[in-house]
Simulated assay, not measured.
Amino acid sequence: MQADFSYEPVCNSAGCQIGVTVLADRAHIRGELRDDAEAAGFRVLHSMSLADYANGAITALGDVLLVDCAEDTAEALALLSRLDMRAGKAGTQMVVSTTMGALDAIFGCFSSSAPQILVDPCRSERAIAIGRVLAHVPNLRLRELGEEDRLMLLRLTEQVGRIAEKLEKVTQGQRAQGGAFRFESPAPNWHAEDDSYVMTKDRKAVPKLPRAETIRLVIKARKARAHYFEGELFADPAWDMLLDLSAARVEGDRVSVSSLCIASGVPATTALRWIGQMVTAGLLVRVADAEDRRRVFIAMSQDTVDAMARYFAEVGVSVDGFVLA
């Protein structure tokens, strides 16, 4: 039975009910999105397939845009890119749901609007995303909320709070020290005995990342814990992604969004929230594919690379392998 989220009509500062556009090729999902938007207090301006919207007259997007795109066809990607630019300029809030198979192409379409991207979501996950949109609306009054709904929203709030708290600590370190972790600088007359450290004119001494095989051993050891304990006890998607990106950096490989989501060890939608937060914090960067501008890879920023190299050196993982047992 679908939870009954019932809200007073949501209005903007002018007193007009906030409008939403629903675009989805799958008719049953389009109907669910429309019903959930109306239940949340929005006024549905348009509800149609992506193709119908693309072929129709140009219309206003409204304040909120809900999109479901399961296939990364050229026509769909072109429309999403246009919607991204329009939504970014207009300040329209977007919620986009897609499939794991289409994620990489869909992710690459968005650079201006900062949408919530959901991967193979259930209806309740889409309702939560709509709820996050409502969080930006002032003076919202909730008429009725069941105990199960309260617990669900509480878990969501706790999760977002933990993300914000961890990232705030990281960004504070970056602002104060120029990196994600704090380490003392070497003395002016310091020099390396080999090439484990590098010196440049504008950069302080920075250790190199260990070999990819060594980093993969660290990742393998982390995953082995799930053989003996409940995996969720050790969920740390940000760190798992940084480890995977570190190994890829040494190997000279590019990492797709979908691959990074898998490496995170958490559901793809959760991983995407982490990726978005880490890009905002400057830990990760989007890298466009020179051969296909629609495709986007994720990489560590140079400060993050340096911080990871310092971390490995601090815990006894050298360029040549483990130093400490």
Results as ranks from 00 to 15, higher is better:
residue 2 Q to C: 02
residue 3 A to D: 15
residue 3 A to C: 06
residue 18 I to D: 03
residue 20 V to A: 15
residue 21 T to H: 08
residue 22 V to I: 14
residue 23 L to I: 14
residue 26 R to S: 07
residue 28 H to T: 13
residue 33 L to W: 08
residue 33 L to S: 01
residue 33 L to E: 12
residue 36 D to Y: 03
residue 47 S to E: 08
residue 49 S to C: 03
residue 53 Y to E: 09
residue 53 Y to I: 00
residue 54 A to I: 01
residue 57 A to D: 08
residue 57 A to M: 07
residue 63 D to P: 01
residue 65 L to S: 06
residue 68 D to Q: 14
residue 73 T to Y: 04
residue 75 E to F: 05
residue 76 A to E: 04
residue 79 L to H: 07
residue 85 M to L: 13
residue 92 T to M: 07
residue 95 V to E: 02
residue 95 V to K: 03
residue 96 V to E: 02
residue 97 S to A: 15
residue 100 M to E: 15
residue 101 G to Q: 11
residue 102 A to Q: 10
residue 104 D to L: 04
residue 107 F to Y: 15
residue 110 F to M: 06
residue 116 Q to C: 10
residue 116 Q to V: 15
residue 119 V to E: 03
residue 119 V to Y: 02
residue 120 D to K: 03
residue 123 R to H: 10
residue 124 S to I: 13
residue 125 E to H: 04
residue 127 A to S: 12
residue 132 R to Y: 03
residue 139 N to L: 11
residue 143 R to K: 14
residue 147 E to M: 11
residue 149 D to G: 15
residue 150 R to V: 15
residue 152 M to Q: 09
residue 154 L to T: 15
residue 159 Q to F: 12
residue 160 V to H: 11
residue 166 K to I: 06
residue 170 V to A: 12
residue 176 A to I: 08
residue 176 A to E: 15
residue 178 G to A: 02
residue 179 G to D: 11
residue 186 P to N: 11
residue 189 N to T: 14
residue 191 H to A: 14
residue 192 A to R: 05
residue 201 K to H: 11
residue 203 R to V: 02
residue 205 A to W: 13
residue 216 R to A: 03
residue 216 R to K: 13
residue 217 L to S: 07
residue 219 I to T: 12
residue 222 R to P: 01
residue 228 Y to S: 05
residue 230 E to H: 04
residue 230 E to K: 06
residue 231 G to W: 04
residue 232 E to G: 05
residue 234 F to H: 08
residue 235 A to L: 04
residue 241 M to V: 02
residue 241 M to I: 05
residue 242 L to W: 05
residue 242 L to A: 08
residue 243 L to F: 09
residue 246 S to F: 05
residue 247 A to R: 01
residue 249 R to M: 04
residue 250 V to E: 07
residue 251 E to H: 00
residue 252 G to P: 08
residue 252 G to D: 10
residue 254 R to P: 00
residue 255 V to K: 13
residue 257 V to G: 01
residue 260 L to H: 06
residue 260 L to G: 09
residue 261 C to W: 10
residue 263 A to S: 13
residue 264 S to H: 09
residue 265 G to M: 12
residue 266 V to T: 12
residue 267 P to T: 05
residue 268 A to L: 00
residue 269 T to M: 07
residue 269 T to Q: 06
residue 280 T to D: 14
residue 282 G to S: 10
residue 283 L to E: 07
residue 285 V to L: 13
residue 285 V to F: 08
residue 285 V to R: 09
residue 286 R to E: 15
residue 286 R to W: 04
residue 294 R to V: 09
residue 294 R to M: 10
residue 298 I to A: 04
residue 300 M to V: 06
residue 312 F to A: 03
residue 314 E to P: 00
residue 316 G to I: 08
residue 323 V to F: 06
